[in-house]
């Protein structure tokens, strides 16, 4: 706990308007004691995030099931999409470069159990967020035996 805190200290002077080291104390307090309230955007400011990324627009969504797989293990999690499209292809090698430090964070690095915890996270970092509705399948009661049920004399075949 102490080491990352110390590392973030030098950036404090740059990003915070108040010169006192009070926020640093508050951060360590927040980690151990939930009574201290974290104001929106505060974590972003003390975590050394470059200023231009402090106000970002993000989309909070719950990824749909992959169309070609039936497994539901990964369904129901929440992700943050940083709407990052600053990308270009290296003309020599064809590698993709990006100018956005968050380009790969949302997809790979952040997963939340609920929309609320994703919201809280975005708020702490001072991001502007929209939450997209999660679509769930409509389950109908079906039984295998039903396929063989007698439904009266056969009607004209449906195409």
């Amino acid at each position: 706990m102490a080491a990352p805190l110390r590392r973030s200290l030098p950036s404090l002077g740059r990003t915070l308007l108040s010169p006192s080291p009070a926020p640093a104390r508050m951060l360590s307090a927040a980690a151990s004691d939930a009574l201290v309230e974290i104001k929106p955007g505060e974590i972003g400011m003390v975590s050394g995030i470059p200023e231009e990324h402090l106000r970002r627009k993000v989309v909070i969504y719950s990824p749909a099931r992959t169309a070609s797989q039936q497994g539901s293990g990964k369904v129901g999690r929440w992700k943050i999409n940083f709407v990052s499209t600053q990308k270009w292809e290296n003309p020599l090698m064809g590698w993709t470069s990006t100018g956005d430090p968050y380009a790969n964070v949302g997809e790979a690095g952040l997963t939340f159990d609920s929309a609320d915890s994703a919201k809280a996270f975005a708020e702490k970092h001072g991001w502007d967020y929209v939450v997209r509705k999660r679509h769930t399948p409509l389950l109908k009661a079906k039984s295998y035996a039903e396929n063989f049920k007698w439904r009266g004399p056969p009607k004209a075949e449906q195409a």
Partner: peptide, 26 residues
């Protein structure tokens, strides 16, 4: 229809459906 656009770098590689029971089902 609700879709997922799969991209690699700056290029769209494919489009797959995404569930929405009200519009395109799956």
């Amino acid at each position: 229809s609700n879709i997922r656009v799969d991209s690699r770098g700056p290029e769209v590689m494919r489009i797959v459906p995404r569930l929405n029971e009200d519009i395109n089902e799956e």
